[in-house]
Amino acid sequence: MEQKRVTVLHNRDARRDSLYLPADHLAEVYSRLLSSDWSLWTPDLLAESLFWVFRAQEPRELLTLSAKEQALNSAYRNRRLRPFVRGDVLVIGNQAFACEPWGRALPVDRNALKIVTRLADTRRERRTAARAR
Rank of each mutant, 00 (worst) to 15 (best):
D109T: 13
P101H: 08
T42C: 07
V85D: 06
K114Q: 15
E125F: 11
P59E: 11
R60K: 08
V108F: 10
A14D: 00
A56I: 01
A56Y: 02
V108L: 04
R123E: 04
L63F: 10
L106I: 06
E100F: 06
L72I: 13
T122Q: 08
S49T: 10
D109G: 09
D17W: 09
F84H: 09
D44C: 04
R82K: 06
R79S: 03
L9F: 14
E100Q: 14
P83E: 01
Q70K: 14
Y76S: 09
F54Q: 05
L50D: 04
L63R: 15
R77H: 08
Q95K: 06
P59L: 11
R126G: 08
I115C: 04
K68D: 14
I115S: 09
A112R: 15
D121N: 08
R77W: 02
R104S: 05
L21A: 12
L45C: 03
E28P: 06
V89E: 01
R123S: 07
N78H: 15
R5A: 04
R118T: 02
R124C: 11
L90M: 11
S31H: 08
A27M: 11
T122E: 11
D13T: 13
R82C: 01
I115K: 07
Y30R: 12
L19R: 08
S36L: 13
Y76R: 10
L45D: 13
C99E: 03
L63A: 14
L113E: 02
L9T: 05
A75G: 14
Q3W: 03
K68Q: 06
R60T: 12
T42I: 01
D121T: 12
H25W: 06
D44L: 13
T64R: 15
E2L: 10
D121F: 07
L33W: 13
A67S: 13
A75E: 07
R133L: 15
L62P: 01
I115M: 07
V53A: 01
A105N: 08
N11Y: 04
S31D: 01
R15T: 12
P83N: 08
E2V: 09
W38K: 13
A27P: 10
L65W: 05
R60S: 05
H10T: 10
R12E: 08
F51Y: 04
V116A: 11
E58W: 05
A96G: 09
A14N: 06
L45I: 05
